[in-house]
Design a protein around this nucleic acid. Sequence first.
DNA 1: CAACCGACCTGTTCGC
DNA 2: TGCGAACAGGTCGGTT
Length: 272
Amino acid sequence: MPELPEVEVLRRDLAAEVVGRRVDAATVTGARTVRRHPPDEVVEAVAGRRIRAVGRHGKFLLVELDDGTVLVVHLRMSGQLRLEDPARPAPPHTHAVLALDDGRVLRFVDPRTFGELFVTGPDRPELAGLGVDALEPGLSPADLARQLAGRRAPVKAVLLDQRRVAGLGNIYTDEVLHEAGVHPFRPGGSLTAAEVRKVARVVPKVLRAAVEARGSSLADAQYVDLYGRTGGFQRAHRVYGREGLPCPRCGAPVQRLRLGNRSSFSCRSCQK
DNA sequence: CAACCGACCTGTTCGC
DNA sequence: TGCGAACAGGTCGGTT
């Protein structure tokens, strides 16, 4: 499911497609999806508004409306946004729909219902705790050094912590740490200055390449874009999901470890 | 404050 | 083939 690159692909496509459109009507059928409000409140807040811009911070998508209201979307594990003709049957697990003034509908689809929509004001206090976005404006080596300093938690856990850096998830932390040659279980505070610089340099490199390839869609193709298409970056994964396959740098088999309850993929010989 | 763990859900895949 | 177990890309709240 979506991490920063997948959300960025949606943001760009939405910006091109819906900025300037008016939301003629909204329907919310999944109360859990709008758990922060009574459903009517969300409908009320967006209906009749024009879309001014589409932004992003970490994995949060920010649909800015003409009265300053921001519709915030987080896809969590299984959320999708689909921009479709309303004549097309709504996919199962469609929890909210915005009808646009060009005749199309924007559908929020989410089987696991971890995702959510909420509305907030222009300063969006709900997102105040997020760290710097991993892509834009990005993470300087000094920022990263500050986040890692003194941490005994594994460097991967620090990178996954959205309060420290916003946007990285399980796939892209593994890809970044492999490319940087750093073992995911290394205590955050144990990285050398050179390693910190390397990681800081690799983060935007990997994320840009992933956006360019329109994100990662794993075998079950959970992630699809606005038009239902899968991404292509999974073909460029070096370690994620590649247990037992040769490391592209040194040929040693990729190992799968556990960090907390999640899989972590790395190369035993070139990530120390 | 930092670190760890289970919980939140449904769908798909894996192993017996 | 059938069936339960394990697993999935993210966060949050509670506990130590």
